[in-house]
Write a protein that binds this DNA or RNA. Structure first.
Lengths: 202, 202
DNA sequence: CAATAATCTTAAGGTGGTTTAAGAAAGTAG
DNA sequence: CTACTTTCTTAAACCACCTTAAGATTATTG
């Protein structure tokens, strides 16, 4: 019975991944088998760290359950959140992954979470075996790139208040799951200023 | 004789593109022919605009000669430079290109320039005919994404002075080709402040 | 070479956001 | 249900960068 439940959970997580991929590309039944076998499941407790600064990130990671953050620490040991991720998102220190160099970011679970990992070498083979996967990641990076470009433009041209309102409109689900000081960190302001700013809105 | 020179120039531009692609992926002689026939050459005078706000960007554009910028205008009609590009770079309003929606950015030549264009439909077919091209753009977007991520992180965590020094170290060639107030715009500061900042450095 | 346009500098006063420090409120474990 | 930790708020002094306005320098064009 316990085994049944365990296997059931694994299938659930991979089912989500397959559904996620099928939302963007086409996979034959054979492709699906190959893809399923290429990922392994990792369970994380709340606050558990998936990637430490200094380690080399060697996996792409799909969140099938829970909530994580990627952040780095500056010279003064202050944390700066680069990205949040919830179910259906990918999180990583991509620079480390892509260049095979030590990570500058941490990746940490903010809730009990389940992620699916694929090793760089496995993914690089998969690009040849299942070309649709290469297409998936080309499209993914295109989208991620323009999203980041707009975030950069926003960050430079808009006030903290405008950015906060946009964040709230766009990521209501995330705002309700993470502490306010982390939202401040993501927006690039102090928690004190976010607090003051929120007071003015009401 | 004139015809000879003209053809010669076209070949030069496309040669640069092929060399650029071959720096990252492998192309068979047949692939090369297909790729060459997929791009068309555009010559731009100084200050000529290649893409206007409101138009839909339908081409990917490789700079084979010259210098361009992508910028947008805010509500107060102030210009904000998103990207510079010189020989060997790609410039575009990618959001417009990828989503088939009206551009929010202008793309303009800052010098007499030559670009090679490929239409979205042609490129999408090319992804099927020459899979190496799909790989090229996956790698390109991966790299562009992490570069932009680091620019965003920089913009939020560092002072204008630090960002200027980094820009200068990284893009010395660009700094020498564009006016200082455009560098200020790219860095997200006023030209007056950049001027004051430079004074303090000496 | 003169005239005009484009770019860069200087300086004074203003604003958005930070820092520091303290206390209040809300979660969580024992 | 108490004690402790985490998170949020308030307020004052401070700093990075902006705005405005004017003049100085450097290109560009006729």
């Amino acid at each position: 019975m316990l085994t049944y439940l365990f296997i059931h959970l694994i299938l659930q997580a991979k089912d989500k991944l397959i559904a996620h991929l099928r939302g963007i590309i086409q996979l034959s039944p054979n492709d699906e088998v190959i893809v399923r076998n290429s990922f392994k499941e990792i369970c994380l407790a709340k606050k558990e760290v998936l990637l430490f600064t200094g380690e080399i990130s060697s996996h792409m990671q799909f969140i099938s359950e829970g909530c994580l953050r990627a952040y780095y620490m500056d010279e003064e040991a202050k944390e700066h959140i680069v990205q949040f991720g919830i179910e259906g998102w990918w999180v990583n220190d991509l620079y480390s992954y892509l260049t095979n160099t030590p990570a500058k970011q941490f990746v940490q679970a903010l809730e009990k979470s389940t992620v699916l990992q694929i090793h760089r070498d496995t993914l690089n083979s998969l690009y040849n075996e299942v070309p649709a996967i290469e297409r998936f990641f080309r499209l993914k990076f295109e989208k991620a790139y323009v999203a980041f470009q707009y975030r950069t433009i926003d960050a430079m041209a808009k006030t903290a208040e405008e950015r906060y309102l946009e964040f709230r409109a766009k990521y209501r689900d995330i705002e309700q799951r993470v502490p306010q000081y982390m939202v401040a960190s993501y927006l690039g302001i102090t928690p004190e200023f976010l607090s003051a700013l929120r007071k003015n809105l009401k």
